[in-house]
Amino acid sequence: MDGYGGRGRKAEQDAMTVEIGYAVVSAVFAAGVVFGAVAGPALLFDLPDLLSRLLLRAGLTLAPIVFVVRAVSVVVRFRRGAQPSQPGRTNPDS
C-alpha cells in the first residue's frame, strides 16, 4: 500500500504542507519585523520629509526580500532531509 500513495506518501505530503505553512508564517513575521525596524521611525516620529520617504521605501523594499529569503530557506532546509526519521527517539547506544 505504501508504494501506491498509501500512508507513507500521505505523511510526506502532510509534512510538506506543515513545513510550507511554517515557512509562510515565519517569513511574514520576519518581514514584518524588518519593515517595522526600518520604516517604524518614519511612521512614529515627525522626521524630515526626505528621510521619512527614504525609510518607508527602504522598508517596502527590504520586507519582500526578507520574506522570500526566509520562506525559501525553510523549504530548502526541509527538502534536504534535516528531519529526524523518528522524532523524539534517541539512539539506543546513548
Rank of each mutant, 00 (worst) to 15 (best):
P84V: 03
F35P: 01
A15H: 12
L56P: 00
Y22G: 14
M16Y: 11
V72K: 12
L56F: 02
R80H: 09
L43F: 12
V25W: 10
A27M: 04
L44Q: 15
D46Q: 11
Y4D: 07
L55T: 02
D14C: 07
V38P: 03
R70H: 15
R7S: 15
G3N: 14
P92K: 07
V38F: 04
A63P: 00
A30Q: 02
V66Q: 02
L51Y: 05
L62N: 02
S73P: 07
Q86F: 12
L55R: 01
E19K: 09
S94T: 15
P41K: 00
A23Q: 01
R89T: 13
R7Q: 14
V38G: 03
I65V: 12
P92W: 03
G3H: 10
P48K: 05
D14Y: 08
F67K: 01
V76W: 09
A42S: 02
F67M: 05
V68L: 14
R7Y: 13
M1G: 15
Q86C: 09
G8T: 11
L51F: 10
V18H: 13
A58C: 12
S85Q: 06
Q83E: 12
V69F: 11
R57A: 13
G36C: 00
A23M: 04
G81M: 08
P64E: 05
Q13I: 15
